[in-house]
Design a protein around this nucleic acid. Structure first.
Lengths: 136, 136
DNA sequence: CGGGATCCCTGCTGATACTG
DNA sequence: CAGTATCAGCAGGGATCCCG
C-alpha cells in the first residue's frame, strides 16, 4: 500500500517535531504561562500570601475548578507553597516561592514590553483592518 | 424571579472581569504569544526573510491552515510584512518588522529564563509527584 | 471553607479538497 | 505555489453537585 507512504511520512515527521517541541524548555514554560489564570494568580500572590477564597474573590470570573487546577499546577512546578490549616472551617494559604517570584519578574518584563508597544500593535491592526475593508 | 439573581450577578461580574482582562495589553500580548506557532514563526523569520513554503518546511508539523492563520495574525499586528510577487508560480515573502524583531527579543529573554530555571521546575515536579505517590 | 468528580459544550485544531 | 473553505474530532474550560 504505497499510497499511504506520503501520509505516514508526514505523520512521522509531525510526531518527531512535536516531540522536539515538547522537549523544549521554553515551550514548556510558555505553555504554563499561557494558561489564562497563571499570570493572574502570580500577580495576585506577588502582593503577599493569600487564602483560597481571597484569590477567588480577587480573580473574579475564574471558576473554582480552574483556580484549583491552576494552583495545583503552580504548586507542582514549585512556584508556590500550599499550607493547610485544619481548623474547623478549613483554611488554606498560598504563598509564592522564590522561583515563583522570579517567574513573576519575567512576566512583569513582558508586561512592560506590552505596555510600551501595544500602541503600535493596535495601530497596525487598525491600519490592516482598514486596508482590508477597502478591498472588500 | 429572584432565584436567578445570584447567578445573574455572577454572570455580570464575570463579564465585567472578562472585559477588564481583555482590555489589558499584557493579556493581549500573552494571548498572542501563547499561540503555539507564533514564537516558532518569529524564531524562524528572525534568521531572515523567508517564503511561505520555506516556513512550512522549517516548521514541520504545522498544518498550512495554522501557518497561514498565524502569519496573517502576525501581519495584522504589524509583526511582519507580507510581500506578494505575482510571478507565474506565485511567490510570497515574509519578513520581520522592527516591532516583530523586538518581540522576538522579549521571547528570547523568556527562553533564557526558562533554560536556567527549568531544572528547578522539573525537580519540583518530580518531588511533588513522588510525594503524591506515597500518599496514594 | 476548600476542593474533588462529573457532565456538557464551545472552539480550537487538523485533514481534505478546491481555487487562482 | 499560496491560500481558502468545509468538515469532523478532541480537549479545555465552565457549571453543578457533593464530600471532607
Amino acid at each position: 500500500m504505497p499510497t499511504k507512504t506520503a501520509a505516514q511520512q508526514r505523520a512521522e515527521a509531525k510526531m518527531a517535531y512535536n516531540a522536539y517541541v515538547a522537549a523544549c524548555p521554553s515551550r514548556q514554560l510558555l505553555d504554563s504561562i499561557s494558561d489564562k489564570w497563571v499570570t493572574l494568580v502570580l500577580a495576585s500572590l506577588a502582593e503577599g500570601p493569600q487564602r483560597y477564597s481571597e484569590l477567588a474573590r480577587r480573580l473574579a470570573g475564574v471558576s473554582q475548578k480552574m483556580l484549583t487546577q491552576t494552583l495545583r499546577k503552580l504548586e507542582r512546578d514549585g512556584m508556590l507553597t500550599r499550607e493547610v490549616t485544619p481548623s474547623v472551617p478549613v483554611r488554606v494559604d498560598y504563598e509564592l516561592t522564590p522561583l515563583g517570584a522570579s517567574l513573576h519578574t519575567v512576566v512583569l518584563q513582558f508586561k512592560t514590553w506590552a505596555e510600551s508597544h501595544m500602541d503600535d500593535v493596535i495601530a497596525a491592526r487598525e491600519a490592516y483592518d482598514v486596508a482590508g475593508a477597502v478591498s472588500a
